[in-house]
Simulated assay, not measured.
Amino acid sequence: MLKIIHLFNNFTCHYSAMKIAILDLDIAQAKSMCEILTRGRYQCHAFTSLPEFLKQFFIDAYHLLVVSLHNAEDKRRIVQEVRTKIAAPLPILGITGTHDEDQILGMLAAGADDYLLRPLRRGELATRVSVLLRQAYPAQIEGEKHTFGSYAFESRFDRVTISGKPVEMTKKEFELALLFFRSLGQPISRSTIIDSVWKGISPELSRTVDTHISRVRAKLKLNPEHGYRLSPVYGFGYRLDELKGRDAP
């Protein structure tokens, strides 16, 4: 049974109205996840007990809950209780350290929308959260504007500008580019790219992903000459890095 431990210090960053709650007994792990998600322009509050989360939720609602507990039964019970007590369509992401199919299916059957395996990859955590939020709150997400240096992304219009100058892109190219910038400095797996941009449906040809990424690289000038490097990660996926200092040409 999960022990009731009072709420510890919040880790908050006011980049966006989208608010994430993390339920985890491990304060260091919760803090690490919050740091990743605040970088992704969300507010993040960490809790160590379900009662404290529920109390705060009914004062100031959250948009997504991450449940990261090591005990599978606690995790299943908490997900089930959240679904019983909260009528709002709150997306739940479960974090698990096991490949055991019964435990994963039990958590999903209790009401979790998705899951991630430990050890967590920073880019994948941010991306899975982004996908769940986009699915649950399309109207809010579509109205967002994201700025990364001279690059500005307007989700409502699938529009990208560089220093105010528009760049012509298809919808999938736009989604790919935004995915890379929101995970700047972190590798993104090919499966995550497909889940995020192709909605879990694998392109007919494996080269489709590479072709789209090549176009994004060219259109947005993501090369060392312009301070960025979009490169493949062998056997895994891709990674966008911003080159600074001695890394820049």
Rank of each mutant, 00 (worst) to 15 (best):
A72S: 15
E73T: 15
K75Y: 00
K75V: 02
R76D: 00
I78W: 00
V79Y: 08
Q80V: 02
Q80T: 06
E81L: 12
T84L: 13
T84H: 06
I92Y: 01
I95M: 12
G97S: 07
G97N: 03
H99S: 14
H99Y: 15
D102R: 11
Q103G: 04
I104R: 08
I104K: 03
L105Y: 03
G106F: 03
G106K: 02
A110H: 03
G111V: 04
A112M: 05
D113K: 07
D114R: 00
L116N: 10
L116F: 07
L116V: 06
R118T: 10
R118L: 13
L120C: 10
R121M: 11
G123W: 00
E124S: 11
L125H: 04
T127S: 15
T127R: 14
S130L: 11
L132K: 04
L133G: 03
Q135E: 15
Y137C: 05
P138Q: 07
P138Y: 05
A139W: 08
A139E: 15
I141E: 09
E142D: 15
G149F: 05
Y151W: 14
Y151P: 07
A152N: 00
A152L: 09
F153W: 01
E154F: 07
R156A: 14
F157I: 13
F157K: 15
D158C: 12
D158T: 10
R159Y: 08
V160A: 04
T161P: 00
I162L: 13
S163Q: 15
S163M: 07
K165A: 09
P166W: 11
K171E: 15
K172A: 06
K172E: 14
E173C: 02
E175N: 13
E175M: 12
A177Y: 03
L179M: 14
R182W: 00
R182F: 02
